[in-house]
Nucleic acid binder design. Structure first.
Lengths: 162, 162
DNA sequence: TATAAAAACGATAACCATTCTCATTTTAAA
DNA sequence: TTTAAAATGAGAATGGTTATCGTTTTTATA
């Protein structure tokens, strides 16, 4: 995975952006937390561990830059903060999420589920699709188990008190 | 459509929320602009025409209340403001949008396109789906026409100058 | 109809994620 | 090494949204 950083650095260089320690540290943090849907604040705190002198504004600027370079995707789950996901390398963007309304866990699902829907949209609505976001809100399997368990113990307690 | 307001009023009453002129005016505005994906500010300005004494905070409170009552859906296109859509009555939620990256126009698409995808998610990911959001970002048919036109005139201009 | 408690209101201050400003530092190429 | 352009950090500014608080309105009851 070391090459991943190198390739991103190369990409910066090719587009004549400067290579700074702050940018490198930010990319490192994103790589080390690839599954975590970090907010700018999250990234800031993590980068600060490596490079304590970094400013929050720089983190925002770097994330914005990486978004423009299509290295990260800026996503929004409606909770008031933007989150930044590293794109799967080479592959398509990753905009399909399962957000658990119980515990807040965010899972990802396979990318090709929408191919058919996209075709219909392009044809029926004469709409040239460039990108898409699909988010399901619901209850993840862990919380389904938890809820079931709680219901059972509540039932047991009710038996005791009656 | 007059009954629509009455039913929402009834719903408020049943859940022992008070019926105020501000709430009624807000619902009226939402009904009269059903296709427009209004922001809170938009609603505020429109309600002010009917009831100039209303405050912005009340509009926010009312929209939040209507969202909890599932009369409106609070949606987010990633442009920094929440928008509020009246739900199609009785029917399911309306969370499928086409957002044009050229002109910002927002169109809606039919609701049943995701039924199959939802089934797969519930089965393969053991995820109980409660709600979903699907947004395509791309170029609407009007802007496709516009872009084509611009390219043609640019070509013509280039011919002249050569 | 009068009354009183709870709910809702308007104005505006507070909040907070994000962006902007600006003086200083760093980068990269000659 | 020099230099101009780019990037940085600190913190002020912005803007959408929420909280506060004293006043007004609603609704249930007498």
């Amino acid at each position: 995975m070391e090459n991943r950083v190198e390739r991103i650095k190369k990409q910066l260089h090719e587009q004549s952006y400067k290579l700074t320690p702050q940018r490198e540290a930010t990319v490192q943090v994103l790589l080390e937390n690839e599954e975590d849907h970090l907010s700018a604040e999250d990234v800031y705190l993590l980068v600060k561990e490596k490079a304590p002198e970094i400013g929050l504004a720089t983190v925002y600027r770097t994330l914005e830059l990486l978004n423009e370079l299509e290295v990260v995707d800026k996503i929004n789950f409606g909770d008031g903060v933007s989150r930044y996901d590293l794109r799967k390398e080479g592959a398509s963007h990753s905009h399909h999420h399962l957000v658990c309304i119980e515990c807040g866990a965010v899972d990802e699902i396979q990318e090709d589920l929408l191919a058919e829907v996209e075709k219909i949209v392009e044809k029926d609505y004469q709409f040239k699709v460039k990108d898409h976001r699909l988010t399901f809100h619901g209850v993840c399997h862990r919380c389904q188990a938890k809820v079931k368990k709680n219901e059972e113990s509540a039932e047991a307690a009710s038996l005791h008190t009656n």
